[in-house]
Design a binder for these strands. Structure first.
Length: 370
RNA sequence: GGGUAGGUGGCGGAGCGGUCAAUCGCAGCAGACUGUAAAUCUGCCGACUUCGGUCUACGGGGGUUCGAAUCCCUCCCUGCCCA
């Protein structure tokens, strides 16, 4: 098992314990949840997106606002994703949305069709303009179903892009006169799909560049939805113990525990917010007492609040839950009603419950003597 | 009383001789969602079913036709206009 699993780190003057979960505020917002409420849910750090904020409102405007923290009124930590995921979710899934060249990713804007070139250097500059606490190199993720040759090329390109990011990062730190204490952390991202050899090759390319932490990139499940335990565990074993290990886009409560057991300690995912907004609420956290953290015994369940059976269920989502929604006494019948009539408050109450649930899971992981 | 437009599945509303158990939207029932093109998307949505079909259906009744939600007659009922 990995070294110290529950440790405190200080990033730009703010402390944080591992492991931690960051909800995705892609466009500098957790759709309808205020910062005060986020904190009440136990959230300590969030993720914003380079690509989306670059297009709208533009990183220069965020800089003008005094940085993303001030802009969105969030005092906690902020990590920005590089736009690497959009290389995958937009371009690889829809070739008409742009193309990848050695220079960078040429996006056709999802907003108006205009063209935008996101180079590794640009990705760094934008993230510095956003003024985030943690940033990620631009990478080139590929679907796990891609042929090995394609993933091999993506690994090599990701390493070259990581190097360009590293160079631009150092340039920015110097130009902005940032110190060791005030500089943001920089994460490299390990690609390589399902292949041990390619993951290793990628790690070997990234380590000499010296990042503050390393991410597990691309999907962690295969085409059949099976968790790639071997490659997830193997990749973690290749990384220095004193570096942060960031499982990008992870995941379901079960997958977070799986990753954590494999040695990863940072997570971000849209699941708690998106599924909450879609009416799926996590309940029945039975973790307490199971020191082995067997995923099978997690006891995580979910209710679809839009189901007709909740129409007249006047109990809260989960008795004893400390989230703002349950503590506030909002019943299932009420939330059900809000979804029925299309009121945004239904999604907001649900997102808060799910975020609290995720943070409760994280707190439990911190408490487990590993 | 006269004229006129209509009556289609829970609602709205297509269809105007066969390929109609009937486009589509809403409502309803369930599901999906993993570095957010997602307050989105998918499936089901007359009854029964051994899922191949079977039955009852487009206001009621009666015709024409090989065949009618679609054409004709008649009755009933709505909306609008004129008295």
């Amino acid at each position: 098992m990995m070294g110290e699993r529950n440790r405190e780190l200080v990033v730009r003057g703010k402390s944080l314990r591992t492991p931690f979960f960051m909800p995705d505020a892609t466009r500098a917002s957790i759709r309808g949840v205020m910062s005060e409420q986020l904190s009440a849910c136990g959230t300590e750090a969030i993720v914003v997106n380079t690509y989306h904020l670059m297009l709208q409102p533009g990183s220069d405007l965020v800089a003008q606002a005094g940085g993303v923290h001030r802009f969105m009124r969030w005092d906690g930590l902020v990590l920005s994703d590089s736009g690497g995921y959009q290389v995958y979710s937009l371009i690889h899934k829809n070739p008409e949305m742009g193309r990848i060249t050695e220079e960078g990713a040429e996006f056709r804007s999802v907003l108006d069709g205009s063209k935008h070139l996101l180079t590794p250097e640009k990705a760094m500059q934008v993230q510095f303009d956003l003024g985030v606490d943690m940033m990620v190199v631009l990478d080139d993720p590929r679907p796990n179903s891609a042929v090995e040759e394609e993933i091999h090329k993506a690994v090599e390109r990701s390493v070259r892009w990581a190097e360009r990011c590293r160079i631009e990062y150092d340039r920015q730190v110097k130009a902005r006169r940032l110190t060791e204490e005030s500089r943001p952390l920089l994460f490299g991202v390990v690609q390589g799909g399902k292949s041990r050899a390619l993951r290793k090759k990628c790690v070997e390319g990234l380590l000499p560049l010296g990042f503050d932490g390393y991410g597990f990139g691309a999907r962690h499940i295969d085409e059949n939805g099976e968790f790639l335990t071997d490659v997830v565990e193997y990749t973690a074993s290749l990384l220095p113990e004193d570096k942060l290990r960031f499982a990008l886009g992870v995941g379901t409560p079960q997958d977070i525990v799986r990753f954590w057991r494999c040695g990863w300690d940072m997570f971000d995912c849209v699941i708690p917010t998106r599924e909450g907004r879609h009416g799926r609420l996590f309940v029945k956290d039975n973790l307490i007492g199971d020191q082995n953290l067997r995923v099978e015994s997690l006891g995580v369940d979910a209710v679809n609040i839009t189901n007709a059976k909740y129409r007249d269920d006047f109990s809260v989502i989960e008795e004893g839950c400390g989230c703002p929604t349950c503590m506030g006494g909002y019943t299932k019948a009420y939330i059900h009603h809000l979804f029925r009539v299309g009121e945004a408050l239904g999604g907001q109450l649900s997102m808060m419950h799910n975020l609290f649930f995720y943070n409760k899971l994280i707190k439990y992981l911190r408490s487990v003597n590993n």
